[in-house]
Design a protein around this nucleic acid. Structure first.
Lengths: 308, 308
DNA sequence: GCTCCAACATGAGAGATCCTCATATTAAAG
DNA sequence: CTTTAATATGAGGATCTCTCATGTTGGAGC
């Protein structure tokens, strides 16, 4: 009758504050949760949550179930992890390469957390510059590549992490700072600061400037996000960066961010693994850990749409 | 992925010692458990129990899951009971009548246990002699009748408790004591000791003697099981009683039991409730409690076949 | 008060799941 | 080496649980 599914749902609703948000976290539709909850309430003959408030409020019965969920779900999760370790052996290798410098920000905490659960898995992290990471992945030199450019290849499986917006960092006193968005043409007179990688890997070109046939006034490179922010703040140019990578600098008031085009440029960040590896227990666990930490720590990111 | 269903299955297998017995306790087929277990083992990539031993042995992984089951299932159960109490109100009435004297034996502990969970339910227990209990049930004077004679009535719902064998208690030194079974004809010369109720309510007549057209030499009555056993032990006659009601006297060596006919006379004990009442939370809970206690304390009883 | 928007509800139908039935296989006991 | 009790397996059907499409509702803003 009562099943873990129901407890997971209630916990997610509590964490999220609404059915819509909870359904995204659980990777099901809002309709599914609505049906499931209604069915449970019907069978219990009790109302569990009051929907017309925001965030939703739990009734006495709902709270009781929620308490049960909070009590037993961690135990279940712990046992599941233990069993996964037992099944595939607790050892293995996870060599990760990132194409996106900023990813260090969330990857480091994720790796720390992961190491606790899988102490025997050999971890390694490298930046994928100066070589073709997907080749290294299929060849077996790497086990995971974090990228926002999925390439159609039957040997590679792309596991989505989150969607983010590519925004333009501009100086605080720049005349663009107050604009809601800017058009590609505006960059023709500007200095664009980018990471030192090939143009084809830079979304600001592939998704914004190139389609409009615009080239920036000049381009200069910087290795690390803080360096780019310093240059932008000093009025030496503008830089296209993921919105979540800019949050801390925006909060500090160093720079401002402006949308690229009316709709904005949205990208999805993926973890690419070898086809088949998506079922390896510790890979699945890593993805769960990473996703949870990202949505906890990064602001402005969105969940990947199911149908995508 | 992992669900409470799996934990309940593992717990039942541990309690029962085999898939067959566990499947009966869970009211599903053996096939269902086999499939379920195999599927779980497959998805975990781990063997959970070793089947070729009796009782089955749990592997490390199986034990881990079993420990989880023993830890969280009681918590779940407790919460479910609480919610049931919340839903239908925690009060109500359960007036029970028994047609079978011996039933006091298991009914008393069941009522004690039940009272702990449902303190607000008004309990009453009476013997259904000298009046028609089913009429009292449909009229609302009673809420449950414990009987082994289901009568086809759309207003009444029969909830099976267990199957038992009606056996003949004979004196220890009687010449029948060593027989595997006796034929109806043998009773023609004997004194039969029965409860003081109408012939039609006595299974020994309806299911054994009457079909063979035999009447016992003489009939005398006794009110209580211990009295009947005393008379039988003293060589004053024989008595047909449920096998489970005789267990303690057999163990004491007071009397012996003999099967009635080659196949034995098997009966099912039911709890009759008003149609619709079978969904009342505290009635369901009472049935679960009673069933669990019966199979724990009574020996020689069987589970009711699903297809019956 | 009216419109709009976001959140939740609902009905129908597809797909997955889980169970049962019938039967095969296996292991242990006689 | 049979016999029997337990477990395994394959097929098929009932049920469940999603998704899709659309309806309804409550509250913020004009």
């Amino acid at each position: 009758m009562l099943e873990l599914r129901h407890l997971r749902t209630l916990q997610a609703i509590d964490d999220a504050g609404s059915l819509v948000e909870a359904s995204e976290r659980l990777h099901v539709t809002q309709s599914a949760l609505s049906h499931q909850l209604k069915d449970l309430e019907h069978r219990l003959g009790l109302e569990l949550i009051v929907r017309r408030t925001r965030p939703v409020r739990f009734t006495t019965a709902g709270s009781r179930l929620l308490a049960l969920a909070r009590q037993i779900l961690p135990l279940v999760k712990k046992t599941e992890t233990e069993l996964k370790r037992l099944s595939a052996g607790d050892s293995g290798r996870l060599h990760i390469a990132i194409e996106c410098h900023s990813c260090f920000q969330w990857l480091m905490p994720a790796l720390d957390r992961f190491r606790e659960d899988w102490p025997e898995v050999e971890l390694d992290l490298s930046a994928a510059f100066g070589f073709e990471p997907l080749t290294a992945l299929t060849r077996g030199d790497l086990d995971m590549v974090v990228t926002s450019d999925p390439v159609d290849d039957p040997a590679v499986c792309y596991l989505p992490l989150f969607r983010y917006e590519l925004v333009l960092a501009v100086a605080r006193d720049s005349e663009w700072a107050a604009r809601r968005f800017i058009e590609p043409g505006a960059l023709a007179e500007q200095t664009l600061i980018t990471y030192p990688v090939e143009r084809e890997r830079l979304d600001v070109f592939t998704a914004f400037l190139d389609p409009a046939g615009v080239a920036p006034g000049s381009v200069r490179t910087a290795e690390l996000t803080p360096m780019m922010v310093q240059l932008v703040a000093a009025g030496r140019g503008v830089a296209a960066l993921p919105n979540w990578a800019l949050t801390e600098y925006l909060d500090l008031g160093l720079v401002k961010s402006v949308r690229l085009g009316e709709e904005g440029v949205w990208r999805t960040l993926y973890a690419a693994v070898r086809q088949g590896d998506q079922t390896v227990p510790f890979i699945q666990d890593f993805m769960e850990t990473a996703e949870a930490l990202c949505f906890k720590n990064l602001s402005g990111i969105r969940r990947v749409n199911l149908s995508a």
